[in-house]
């Protein structure tokens, strides 16, 4: 069991984040209790929790899309609420623009930031060729498979080099094989580039494969139940072979029991 509390030098710090919806109405919904954690530099931190525990709300707060009712999230000391572009995110949906080519989808974030066309094309081109989509620069998203599209979405996130990358169930719309493939690939890229990543997922296996630490949330209103440090080396993190590792099963059973998944389904 690791400590959840943020420490100095953390890239992202969530302190006392709470969220109440319809606060002024007769029946306010308390989605998040009191959540604090820190994301270390070049670390992958997974957040798992039972369905409906408020993961998406937490995601939106970290991404700066909504302002929490209490507490705050900061990236390198700057509050994310209101500030844009510190956090790059990727969802289950690829959200590629169908009228743009692969290359122009990847450059979107750079364009918004006013990076010159030549420079953004170069950055995008380098990403596309080094991560296995060389030759597809001019293809339209509609002609790509789900896995390829998600890869493009990931490159779009990488291209503008955010301080923190936020992945929200990024592979859950993909078929099992593609999902494992992309888990391996994305985690290799993240580690190669030393990215600081928050992975929000309900897939415990995915969390163990990809994360250095796993934050387990309670049922709503969500709070941090405990934090696990996953002590696996990079070479042990192959999405397929990791399943034969006794440590994997140990983590899996532990986290599963902590999720308080009720048998009402």
């Amino acid at each position: 069991m690791g400590e959840a509390m943020a420490a100095d030098g953390d890239v992202l710090i969530a302190s006392g984040v709470g969220m109440v919806f319809n606060a002024d109405s007769a029946n306010p919904v308390r989605a998040l209790g009191d959540i604090s954690f820190g994301l270390r530099k070049s670390e992958v931190l997974a957040i798992v929790g039972p369905s409906g525990c408020g993961k998406t709300t937490l995601f939106n707060i970290i991404a700066g899309l909504i302002t929490p009712s209490q507490g705050s999230v900061s990236v390198n000391g700057v509050q994310v609420a209101g500030a844009k572009g510190h956090v790059g995110y990727m969802l289950q949906k690829d959200m590629l623009l169908p009228w743009r080519s692969v290359l122009d989808n990847v450059t979107l974030g750079l364009e918004v930031r006013g990076v010159s066309r030549a420079e953004s094309v170069e950055i995008a081109h380098r990403l596309i060729t080094s991560y296995g989509l060389g030759g597809f620069e001019n293809a339209k998203p509609a002609t790509l498979s789900g896995g390829m599209r998600q890869r493009v979405a990931f490159m779009r996130t990488l291209a503008f080099d955010p301080d923190v990358i936020l992945l929200d169930e990024p592979f859950s719309a993909l078929d099992f094989q593609t999902r494992l493939l992309l888990q391996g690939e994305v985690q290799r890229i993240i580690r190669e580039r030393g990215k600081s990543v928050i992975l929000v997922t309900h897939d415990i296996g995915e969390a163990i494969t990809m994360a250095d630490r796993i934050v387990v949330m309670t049922n709503r209103p969500a709070t941090v139940k405990c934090v696990h440090t996953i002590e696996l080396s990079d070479s042990e993190r192959d999405p397929v072979t990791i399943r034969t590792n006794p440590l994997y099963n140990q983590y899996f059973n532990q986290i599963w029991s902590e999720l308080e998944i009720r048998r009402e389904i």
Binding site: A63, G64, L65, K84, G85, V87, G88, Y89, L91, K93, M95, L97, L108, G109, V112, R113, F160
Partner: peptide, 10 residues
């Protein structure tokens, strides 16, 4: 979601 994505990009 696209509009939110754009907003998050600044």
């Amino acid at each position: 979601d696209l509009i939110r994505l754009m907003r998050s990009l600044g």
